[in-house]
């Protein structure tokens, strides 16, 4: 053990970098994590050959399920995330993706099997099912000569991520729009009262929220009630950099049926937000996916992922005459 330490103390000389860090106002701050992240391999920078063809169908949200049945699925194999701590996932091995656009909106559909529905995160031990869809922000070429990490992008190579969450879906469908503590702990206000929600107490608690509201006051989207969407619109430039956008543009809907999830995410082809990927019929881009299985405690890097980009091709708009 001591030998090992002596040997390692040679490495310690690189502590010169410390000086750099010391000039920061935080002792340990973003972007200095060491050792737990590996670079993408050459193979990972070769996109898959088979593209997802986003079919042009003049459908809207009500008829989208029928439209998806006319679109050919792209089947992707998933594996555990093993590049950035904490590694994990791998319990979902395959995913089917379909794409449709109607000239103004683009729709992506995902199907994967998951025997357990995990759509609550109100208590310590509850983790959500989710699916993430990632695009390079800009129009790029991806090859071993022009690498672009299929894992969260990179410095100077931003990605746009759409993250659908099972608990957000549940809340959208529920009456109050947000799950509260008393939904998990119905007797939380008193153990010995036939009224599980004595009004005066409940009121006091509720009104105290703005005072010490943590994430809610900080504007953390995860903490807000009535978000009005089930999909979070984010950006990243590498591991640990995932950031919620100020402007949310993506919508979604999902359903757990026949031991699996069927999730659709959709957005306007073009948005006014410079942090969003833009879709132009006829132009090719790339996408990648990740799936989280809440039952297995999946969250953050603990997820089932596809390790390579897949091309996305939007059919051009066909006019009826």
């Amino acid at each position: 053990m001591l030998n090992k330490l002596l040997f390692k103390s040679v490495l310690f000389m690189c502590a010169g970098v410390m000086l750099l860090l010391a000039s920061n106002d935080k002792v340990f701050s973003q972007g200095v994590g060491l050792g737990a992240e590996a670079e993408a391999t050459v193979e990972e920078n070769i996109p898959r050959e088979k593209a997802l063809v986003v079919k042009y169908i003049n459908a809207d949200l009500d008829t989208i399920d029928k439209a998806f049945s006319q679109a050919a699925p792209l089947k992707l194999e998933l594996q555990m995330q093993d590049r950035a701590f904490p590694n994990g996932g791998g319990s979902v091995s395959a995913l089917e993706v379909r794409g449709v656009h109607n000239g103004s909106r683009i729709f992506f559909n995902f199907k994967w099997s998951d025997k357990t529905k995990n759509d609550r995160v109100i208590a310590d031990h509850l983790f959500r099912d989710a699916v993430g869809l990632m695009f390079p922000l800009d129009i790029v070429t991806i090859s071993p000569e022009t690498p672009f990490s299929p894992r969260m992008g990179d410095r100077g190579k931003p990605v746009n991520i759409w993250h659908w969450k099972a608990d957000w879906e549940r809340e959208m469908d529920s009456e109050c729009g947000f799950e509260h503590m008393e939904d998990q702990y119905p007797d939380m206000f008193t153990d010995f009262d036939f009224h599980t929600h004595p009004l005066h107490f409940h009121d006091q608690e509720l009104h105290s929220i703005p005072l010490i509201s943590g994430g809610r006051a900080a504007g953390n989207m995860l903490s807000q009630p009535n978000k009005g969407t089930t999909v979070e619109d984010l950006n990243a430039i590498g591991f640990s950099t995932l950031t919620t956008q100020d402007h949310q543009d993506v919508q979604g809907k999902g359903k757990w049926e026949n031991s699996g999830w069927n999730v659709t995410m959709y957005r306007d082809l073009i948005t006014a937000d410079t942090n969003d990927v833009q879709f132009i019929p006829g132009v090719e881009t790339f996408f990648n996916v990740a799936v989280w299985n809440g039952e297995e405690g999946d969250r953050n890097g603990q997820k089932s992922i596809s390790t390579r980009w897949s091309p996305v091709k939007l059919e051009t708009v066909k006019y009826d005459q």
Partner: peptide, 8 residues
């Protein structure tokens, strides 16, 4: 500690 109400 995890705060269920704010999800963080």
């Amino acid at each position: 500690m995890y705060r269920g109400e704010t999800r963080i």
